[in-house]
Computed example of a mutant assay.
Amino acid sequence: MTELFLIGIGTGNPDHLTLQAIKALNAADLILIPRKGDEKAELAQIRRSICADVLTNTATRIVEFDLPQRDPATPDYVQRVEDWHDAIAAVWAKAIAAAPAPKGRVALLVWGDPSLYDSTLRIASRLRPQPNITVVPGITSLQGLTAAHAIPLNDLAAPFTVTTGRQLRDKGWPPGSDRIAVMLDGETSFQHIAAAGVTIWWGAYVGMPQQCILSGPLTDTAPAIVARRKALREAHGWIMDIYILQREPRLS
């Protein structure tokens, strides 16, 4: 392998693909599609549909592989993720080696963008020999959320913070800004902060046909989000959601 394309595909809507992404997919000799089990089969199907829609290069091969699971027996979170990334890199290498030549250009379709709370670049750095990596940026869920609610990401002349549900739950509201965007939150961590004076803009599957958004004062909206999120996860077998929180400056 000489070149690895990490292609941001947006939030699942084929219309999110850039012209650069379409050109990169068609320039690839091999496209790898991960499978994440039956419950998340739709995620692989979306990638297949994108390839079917935009691929015109009949020589491009598509190879699917099963993603390994994180080992819950490892108590340390960081070490658990590091071990998982090692395992994924090994699966990538095996899938590439098993594909018929030529395999000079390999592409991976990355949900959102490879640069924002995504581990694809860290996993790619584990490959040996190290390939030349080309990143094709994509629309992020954060952009999809602000577009869905028709709001700017930052308040006038004010900073904002992007963080994770784990950080919000364990460390509380991050210092330095009154507006935060929260990603990778599987536990609705907004329930662990003081809700008074806080507004939330929440969205699930942003940019996709099944998009669902809710907004309003956190005190009133949090129970509705928790219930809706549970119902959506049960209906689809998976969920990707994101939200922005804004607190009144006097609460700083």
Rank of each mutant, 00 (worst) to 15 (best):
G203Y: 00
A181W: 05
D170N: 13
A147S: 12
P102N: 06
Q45D: 15
A235T: 13
K171R: 15
A21V: 03
N26D: 06
G237I: 08
E3S: 12
I96M: 08
W173H: 03
S125V: 12
I180A: 02
P223S: 01
R247H: 04
D15Y: 10
L67N: 12
S125Q: 14
R35V: 13
I7E: 01
V81N: 10
T146L: 11
N132T: 15
R35I: 12
S49F: 14
H236I: 09
K36P: 09
M240P: 07
G144F: 02
P174F: 06
L30A: 00
P137I: 01
E39N: 15
F5Y: 12
S141Q: 08
R228N: 08
D83C: 14
D155K: 10
D66T: 14
A235W: 11
I33H: 03
L108K: 01
S49C: 13
A158P: 11
A21K: 00
A148H: 02
L55Q: 04
I7D: 03
Q69S: 15
V91C: 07
P129M: 07
V136H: 04
D155I: 12
A97H: 11
D86M: 09
A231Y: 09
Q191W: 09
T161C: 13
G104W: 10
L30P: 02
I88A: 01
V206L: 02
M240A: 09
D170L: 13
D83Q: 15
T60Y: 01
T134K: 09
W173P: 09
P34S: 07
A21L: 01
A195G: 08
A181P: 07
L184Y: 05
W173D: 04
P152E: 06
F5K: 06
